[in-house]
Nucleic acid binder design. Sequence first.
RNA 1: GCGCCCAUAGCUCAACUGGAUAGAGCAAUUGCCUUCUAAGCAAUAGGUUUCAGGUUCGAGUCCUGAUGGGCGUACCA
Length: 541
Amino acid sequence: MNEYLEKIITSSLEQFELEETPEIHLEAPKVESHGDASTNIAMMLAKPLRNNPRAIAQQLVDGMEYDEAKISSVEIAGPGFINFRFAEDYLFDELDSIIKAGEEYGKTDAQKGKKVQIEFVSANPTGPLTVGHGRNAVLGDTVARLMEWTGAEVDREYYFNNAGRQMRVLGQSVQARYLEILGKDHEFPEGGYEGEYIRDIAQELVDEKGEELADADWTPFKEKAEKAIFADIDGTLKRMKIHMDNHFNEHSLYENGDIDSVVQRLRDKGLVYEADGATWFKTTEFGKEKDTVLIKSTGEPTYRLPDIAYHSNKLDRGYDLCIDVFGADHIATYPDVLSGISALGYNKEKVDVIIYQFVTIVKDGQPFKMSTRKANFVTLDELMDEVGADVTRFFFLMRSPNTHLEFDIAQAKEAGEKNPVFYLQYAHARIHSILRKAEEEYSFSGDVKLNLLKEDAESSLIKTLFKFPGAIQSAADAREPHRLINFLNDVASAFTTFYHDCRIIGVDEELAQARIELAKVTAQVLNNGLKILGITAPERM
RNA sequence: GCGCCCAUAGCUCAACUGGAUAGAGCAAUUGCCUUCUAAGCAAUAGGUUUCAGGUUCGAGUCCUGAUGGGCGUACCA
């Protein structure tokens, strides 16, 4: 429809003989009396044409030729908006095409042929996933689903590091607990991991190996811990309906020489130098105040180096777009990565970073700081035990990524009745309940007469359903899943109004048939939308 | 000190990227179940969009400054 409107506006614009055609911006007005679609083009042209916007709008409208089967009226309103109203026949035609699209409705080919990689979660195996990781995981997965619905081919990747100081401390922590269980001398490492899960892992080792490891160093403990924790993380992700296509070990970048190669390539470009025993990257060339250390004087790389190597590795794999999902604490690190890859000759536009703000945990009415190491955290599994996977996913998605998310545990736990996710599921279940009942009451023959749907609540619902592909598109482009939630709320709300104003069972057969069709389409849209969010659409509640 | 993010109803958040009368959900008040699910609906109340300027036909949205909060700013990851 928008394409059609653009066409008729463009052809009417020709009368002004403009040097360049301005971009035509169309939008759906908030207020019903402003029509179904609206453009501000006349106001945009007021300045270049040195004329009153209403006068321009009038000329545009006069010069417009349109199909009355699609558009029933064109009006000028306010300071110079041109408002279009869709013809009823058009609504029914479109509705019919939604019915035909079925579970494919909402998909577009806007990103057709694009290979997209999205890296998220990427927690190192030092402990179970917490509520903090949850936002990352759900955000990444849902953006991936959104991209898929706009036609892209998406790979989900988990990047991890199972070497380094963190992992050594982890191994030593397990070792200490192991010795403790055996009643032997042990020393808990400084800054060690205090969580109960460490004890569990140690206990497993005791059960499996007895005292066999009493004199071992921390290595077998680290290996056991890594395995156990990854298994735990995988289980949590699975519960959240998240599936990774790839796991990428940072260490492989050292083994395949990518790390050395990156340093060498940067050095060849004169962007790397040695000073104070360390190897530096000239980030000042990219507008930063200070240069950045790539390799410490101890010979160990800083995290930036493997990050740059990893991103160049991704781009070498032929992705058109690589999306990273980072918490706000990484906000300062990715500019270095972008500088690095553009220095290496890659197009940094191909890397896109979603930064989400932190989750503030509110427990017993008090916010508290979480720390994996100190073990005062709420795990995702615990959360899902309390409220279920649907509510958990929904909660993380309902807010814009760049605002803080207040996660009140108590509220989430008692959310059963008042949680907004139920509003959507309830609308869906309610429709199915009607459909079940209708099946007993009616047996239809003959074609559906959609043009019987003339009530306000009916056309308003139909128009809302039309916005689904646009809502997906907008959520995908902005990487903001909450936009889809807002849309689905509109659908559920429009359906509920329809449900109250228009009876389905009990009216005459042709009308009932048409209304059932509308209800079915609504259920389909809710179902498709919830599928993108990774939330179930129950048929009974 | 510097950089990024944020400030909207009592609370938690929207506002289609500059549009028309700033919207939902909780919480409050009041109605509505002998008819398809009341996990719902309708109505009332609640706002100088933190403050001060600026840009323009038009600003919650953009620019400058101030205030308040979050996160960074390491040869930590």
